[in-house]
Design a binder for these strands. Sequence first.
DNA 1: GACAACCGCTTGCATTTAGCAACCGCTTGT
DNA 2: ACAAGCGGTTGCTAAATGCAAGCGGTTGTC
Lengths: 147, 147
Amino acid sequence: MIDEPRSGCPVNAAVEVLGDRWTLIVLRDIMFADRRHFRALQRESEEGIASNILAGRLRDLVAAGLLTHDDPGAGKRATYSLTEASIELVPVLAHLGWWGLRHRPTTPELRVRAERLHEGGPEMWQAVMADLRERHLGVSAGTAGES
Amino acid sequence: MIDEPRSGCPVNAAVEVLGDRWTLIVLRDIMFADRRHFRALQRESEEGIASNILAGRLRDLVAAGLLTHDDPGAGKRATYSLTEASIELVPVLAHLGWWGLRHRPTTPELRVRAERLHEGGPEMWQAVMADLRERHLGVSAGTAGES
DNA sequence: GACAACCGCTTGCATTTAGCAACCGCTTGT
DNA sequence: ACAAGCGGTTGCTAAATGCAAGCGGTTGTC
């Protein structure tokens, strides 16, 4: 985190924090599958992330300000939350998914979310972001409870 | 290229081909800085990519169908061209740059392109894509070109 | 109060990828 | 003949990825 950026280009700046094989996958699962605990992220992962890799990514994401981590002490359930910065990745992920859908091999079941996000367009992205702000940034206290 | 995808999710499919520290940087330079030759991509690189890494990325991108490569034989100038698939990454890169601009450290000079792409919006992206199709896909006349 | 199941990780090890520096055969221009 | 430019490759080290197992804590059940 103290290493110099390779350049001051915005695309490079984004790639430096998002550009690896797992970061966007983890964020996708937190955003769209509401997996906010370590074990949920690890065991329910479609792609099968290893626990040490996941631990490293979560640490890096917290350090970069894309996640926050409430740690209630050893043995207890800890929760990862998105920040405003990561919530604003929703349009990027929507576009990326739509591109992947058109240009890479995918399976019908897993295509559904990307299709809906594309059809919904920017207005739906804003609605998704508003919902995430409520649930992750605690806009209104105890709004737990969907599923 | 023969290894199985980790999942059939569109976001994962995109990450599998774009998710590393250099792929999007190379595509950015070809798209927006019009660097279409090996040495231009390597020596004029803002971020300083090593020649072996660049060679590997170019090979992978051609294999994935995101670039084409006209090879006129040893010692001569070879040209890399975008494909329809990579041209359609323009909106993704525009969004990614706009996100990086807002949420990561950048420098004023290098911010300009991302700012303009954001201000121009989807209409400008379409214009950029049309221009790229002309120059890289040879929409008019033969595959000859610029330079 | 013993025991299993769940919690968020860490450790050790092997494999894969990134990265640096030097170099190569070929072509083009002087 | 010679230097400069062309697209890379080779050898090497460092770092990241990935697998399997385990660890100290807590929570729930009998």
